Computed example of a mutant assay.
Amino acid sequence: MSKFFSLFVFLFCISISNAQNADIDLLKKINGNRNTNLESTMKGITNSAMPVSLGTPIIIYAVGMIEKDSTTKKKAIFIGESLAASVFISVALKSIVKRERPYETYPEIDNVTEESSYSFPSAHTSSAFATATSLSMVYPKWYVIAPSFLWAGAVGYSRMYLGVHYPSDVLAGAIVGSGSAFLCYKLNKWINKKKIRKVPQLWE
Score class of each variant (00 low, 15 high):
residue 63 V to L: 12
residue 119 S to F: 04
residue 56 T to H: 03
residue 117 S to L: 06
residue 106 Y to C: 07
residue 105 T to C: 06
residue 128 A to P: 12
residue 56 T to A: 12
residue 117 S to Q: 10
residue 103 Y to P: 04
residue 82 S to M: 12
residue 89 I to P: 02
residue 121 P to E: 00
residue 116 S to N: 07
residue 111 N to R: 02
residue 84 A to F: 12
residue 121 P to A: 01
residue 63 V to P: 01
residue 55 G to W: 07
residue 57 P to V: 09
residue 83 L to K: 02
residue 78 F to T: 01
residue 122 S to W: 01
residue 105 T to Q: 10
residue 89 I to V: 14
residue 103 Y to K: 01
residue 79 I to C: 11
residue 65 M to I: 11
residue 69 D to M: 03
residue 76 A to F: 10
residue 69 D to Q: 05
residue 75 K to C: 06
residue 53 S to I: 03
residue 53 S to G: 12
residue 98 K to H: 12
residue 127 S to R: 04
residue 110 D to I: 13
residue 80 G to E: 03
residue 88 F to E: 06
residue 120 F to T: 12
residue 63 V to A: 08
residue 80 G to I: 05
residue 99 R to A: 07
residue 129 F to Y: 13
residue 66 I to V: 15
residue 127 S to G: 14
residue 54 L to Q: 05
residue 81 E to N: 12
residue 83 L to Y: 13
residue 78 F to E: 01
residue 80 G to P: 03
residue 120 F to L: 12
residue 95 S to P: 00
residue 87 V to I: 15
residue 97 V to L: 05
residue 57 P to C: 10
residue 112 V to Y: 11
residue 128 A to N: 03
residue 90 S to W: 00
residue 103 Y to H: 12
residue 85 A to C: 13
residue 73 K to P: 07
residue 81 E to R: 08
residue 57 P to N: 08
residue 101 R to Y: 09
residue 79 I to M: 15
residue 100 E to Q: 09
residue 102 P to I: 03
residue 54 L to F: 15
residue 90 S to L: 02
residue 74 K to R: 15
residue 54 L to K: 01
residue 125 T to H: 02
residue 109 I to F: 09
residue 112 V to L: 14
residue 86 S to G: 10
residue 61 Y to Q: 00
residue 85 A to I: 12
residue 62 A to W: 10
residue 60 I to A: 00
residue 55 G to R: 06
residue 72 T to M: 15
residue 78 F to W: 06
residue 57 P to W: 07
residue 62 A to T: 14
residue 77 I to K: 07
residue 68 K to A: 11
residue 53 S to Q: 02
residue 107 P to D: 10
residue 98 K to R: 14
residue 87 V to A: 11
residue 96 I to A: 14
residue 115 E to H: 03
residue 77 I to A: 09
residue 132 A to D: 13
residue 71 T to Y: 05
residue 119 S to N: 06
residue 108 E to A: 07
residue 77 I to H: 02
residue 108 E to V: 11
residue 78 F to R: 00
residue 107 P to W: 07
residue 129 F to Q: 02
residue 98 K to T: 15
residue 106 Y to Q: 04
residue 120 F to W: 12
residue 72 T to W: 05
residue 97 V to K: 02
residue 78 F to S: 01
residue 74 K to I: 05
residue 118 Y to R: 06
residue 122 S to A: 09
residue 95 S to I: 04
residue 110 D to N: 13
residue 115 E to S: 07
residue 130 A to L: 07
residue 115 E to I: 10
residue 120 F to N: 06
residue 107 P to Y: 08
residue 61 Y to S: 02
